[in-house]
């Protein structure tokens, strides 16, 4: 009798997964994501929906809003792209070479993470304004950075750098030296080794870093508003416009812009993620 019970119990237990806790952890994850991310975001849409479709369209189709949105996304994209290239090189140097002061420089990379963004904005503005240290040198060349769209890109590049470096670094470290040596013995010139062997290996990490830097750039506010000058239809970014609307007690208008930003960001990040899944599959790492 008791053996039969044991057998039944064992049979009932058998189909369970080898790693327990799937149900609990998934439940927790969904709860946590809902609480921290989804519910506040849903609130944005709920608030914006008060406008109705027409009202929404009215807000979003105003030239000032359209300009601010496109400026935010384009500037963030350019800054992330610049970082992808130069941040990639920085990561390469850190992984591959030993040099005096490396530890110190390594810590410097993370500063944009830690610095209050307003401080960064003020510092950048001071540097790039026509009488600042760098602005002084650029003005004779006819290059204006502070209070232009170029300034926005500079600020976003500053903010986004650690995202690229910190995501690419560990992956680059994983690319065995063997691979480069193998390519060299097979007759590949340095350029071929970089473009056909190293770059494909770090591409997924580079895309992740790009996505993170881009997302951060889209939402960035503090560092940009100081250097941008904030001229409507010229250097006014979407997050600032939201703040302005809030100051005018136009809560629905503010949430409408926020909702639009969310939708666009979500769409872009989804595309990037899909791209990455594709790249990873191609890399045979799954």
């Amino acid at each position: 009798m008791s053996t039969a019970t044991v057998a039944i119990n064992a049979a009932a237990r058998a189909p369970k997964r080898a790693i327990p806790g799937f149900g609990t952890t998934l439940g927790f994850s969904i709860f946590y994501l809902s609480l921290i991310v989804l519910i506040p975001l849903a609130g944005v849409f709920f608030r914006a929906s008060g406008l109705g479709l027409d009202g929404l369209w009215h807000v979003l189709s105003s030239p000032r809003v359209l300009h601010a949105l496109s400026l935010s996304f384009v500037a963030a994209f350019i800054a992330a792209a610049i970082n992808a290239v130069f941040g990639g090189i920085v990561a390469w140097v850190f992984v591959r070479y030993e040099f005096p002061g490396k530890r110190l420089l390594d810590a410097v990379i993370d500063l944009p993470f830690a610095l209050p963004t307003a401080v960064a904005g003020i510092a950048l503005t001071a540097l790039y304004s026509p009488n600042g240290w760098i602005g002084e040198l650029l003005t004779p060349l006819g290059i204006k950075v502070a209070y232009t769209r170029l300034g926005i890109v500079v600020a976003l590049t500053f903010i986004g750098l650690p995202f690229i470096v910190r995501t690419v670094e560990p992956v680059l470290r994983e690319v065995e030296k063997d691979l480069e040596e193998a390519a060299a013995t097979l007759g590949a010139a340095r350029w071929h080794t970089v473009s056909r062997v190293i770059l494909p290996a770090v591409m997924p990490a580079l895309v992740t870093g790009f996505a993170l830097a881009f997302a951060r750039g889209v939402g960035e506010y503090g560092s940009v508003i100081f250097i941008a000058g904030n001229f409507p239809n010229l250097t006014e970014i979407a997050p600032l416009l939201i703040t302005i609307k809030l100051d005018e007690f136009d809560y629905q208008g503010a949430t409408a812009i926020a909702a639009a930003m969310l939708m666009i960001s979500f769409g872009l990040l989804l595309v990037i993620n899909l791209l990455q899944a594709w790249a990873r599959k191609r890399g045979g790492t799954q």
Binding site: E176, E181, A182, A184, G187, A189, V197, A201, G284, T285
Partner: peptide, 19 residues
């Protein structure tokens, strides 16, 4: 240079190009 020597080198850890 390594490239000019035209040697076939096989590594202990294979060193295949994963992608």
């Amino acid at each position: 240079s390594v490239q000019q020597r035209k040697v076939g080198f096989v590594f202990q850890q294979y060193a295949l190009f994963k992608h």
